[in-house]
Amino acid sequence: MTAATSTVGRNRWLSASTWRNLLRDYPLVPLTILLVLLVVLADILQPGLVNPGWVTSAVRQAAVLGILAGCQTLTMLTGGIDLSVGFVASMAGFVTATFVHQPGGWPMGIAVSLGAAALAGLVSGIGVGIFRVHPLIVTLGMGLVVFGFANVWQLQSVQTGSGVPIEIRTIGSGTLGALPNDLLVFVPVAIVLLLLLKRTGYGRMLYAIGDNPIAARLSGVRSWQVLVVLYALSGVLAGIAGLVQSGLSNTASVTLVQPYLLPSVAAAVIGGTSILGGRGGYSGTIVGALILTVLASVLSIVLPEPWRQVVFGSIVVLVAATYARLTAES
């Protein structure tokens, strides 16, 4: 705005600060453009790739990633993170599978596994909220504790035999017309999270604690209450994601979902949620999860496996860093 020439009008339209404001205020717009570009790129690289089957498989993977990224979105909004989601989700899928030949069957399995996931989250929440240990440490440790217990359970249940229940397989890999069944899980979860963040007092508290814990405290917010509930909720969400993933892959393993851990953080960051807290939302995260899924698919066309990971990781870091830089200061 300093120049007084006739080019001001055009410059303003193209100026860095305009783009910065656009990215900050409407992150969904550039993210959606990026997603569309990636899909077009995929179709150019391998004509005919983008067909209903490919869309179904992409949406399937994005659904699991999206739910896990929901855990990260909620915790990151408060300035935290949940690194236990990989092991908690794997545990949930595995425990449910071990109940298939037990009295109570799969419904009992789901109840036990989600209860265990909630309990793990609750303990993390107590560590973060009441004992004020950094969430990175607490959830990393809790993830290992859950992994350990899952292994113990594995040894206990090796005689009884296990298998992913048919009902879970139907959710994870069946289709309803062209649409994958796991949308039946993902869409309600997404709606709940979107409304939770936008329209409830609890959602406001997540943003408040992440933006300025001192201000929240001075306004009468007891942040430990918010945090204990938050990590328990994150545990349950991770458990749900684990069930969907075990149905999708028809596998029950205590490390099944672990590879999704870092992409779940990346999806939330790319979706515009600040790791420092107070800024972001779930709609961006959903698009972020789709972008990562499509990106992985594009890279699998052009690169051999080891290089794919190098490039995938680099792109994630690059996009996240660009985004953080653009939105950092007003």
Binding site: R204, D211, N212, L218, S219
Partner: peptide, 19 residues
């Protein structure tokens, strides 16, 4: 110390309502 700098005027004013 008192404000949620990245949030709206509305959220800042209504902060104690949901505490």
């Amino acid at each position: 110390e008192a404000l949620l700098m990245q949030r709206s005027v509305r959220e800042n004013i209504s902060l104690p309502f949901s505490a």
